[in-house]
């Protein structure tokens, strides 16, 4: 703590401007200066009452909040069910319509799942190579 304290007028000016920065640092570390500023900046009772009035909660806040969170939870549950149903429907339709679907190659381009043969890298499938014989 700094043993030499700024004059009250200087602290008052700091309250108005926040300057100089050096004084801000002094105030942050000096309990004595903080006590003076606490007194300078104290709000009168009337202003505190106005603040309370301005931010006071409505009388039905609890009921409104209970209703609001219940609604949010119901909406979340309904949306979750919709997503689940959509996913089931999508998977089912995909299975029915695209039995050969290979996610890497796209529909209809994958190897015959019954042949057991798969082309190697850089090798064309037999039906696409020239001459028809390997």
């Amino acid at each position: 703590m700094n043993a030499r304290h700024p004059k009250p007028q200087r602290l008052q000016r700091w309250l108005d401007t926040g300057e100089p920065r050096r004084l801000s640092r002094q105030i942050e570390h000096c309990v004595h200066c903080q006590e003076i500023l606490e007194e300078f900046s104290a709000l009168d009772e009337g202003l505190v009452v106005d603040l309370q009035a301005a931010t006071s909660s409505p009388v039905d806040l609890k009921e409104r909040t209970h209703g609001g969170v219940d609604l949010r939870l119901r909406n979340e549950a309904a949306f979750g069910s919709f997503v689940d149903l959509f996913a089931i429907g999508f998977d089912f339709a995909r299975t029915i319509l695209d039995p050969d679907l290979d996610p890497d190659l796209g529909p209809g381009t994958g190897p015959d799942p019954t042949s057991g043969d798969e082309p190697h890298d850089g090798e064309l499938p037999a039906d696409q190579s020239e001459g028809g014989e390997a």
Binding site: E28, F40, L43, D44, D50, L51
Partner: peptide, 19 residues
């Protein structure tokens, strides 16, 4: 903590001056 104090001092002053 020091920041809370210094910011509150100045915020109160703004309100006091305005009102």
């Amino acid at each position: 903590l020091p920041t809370v104090k210094t910011r509150l001092f100045r915020a109160r002053k703004v309100l006091k001056d305005a009102m």
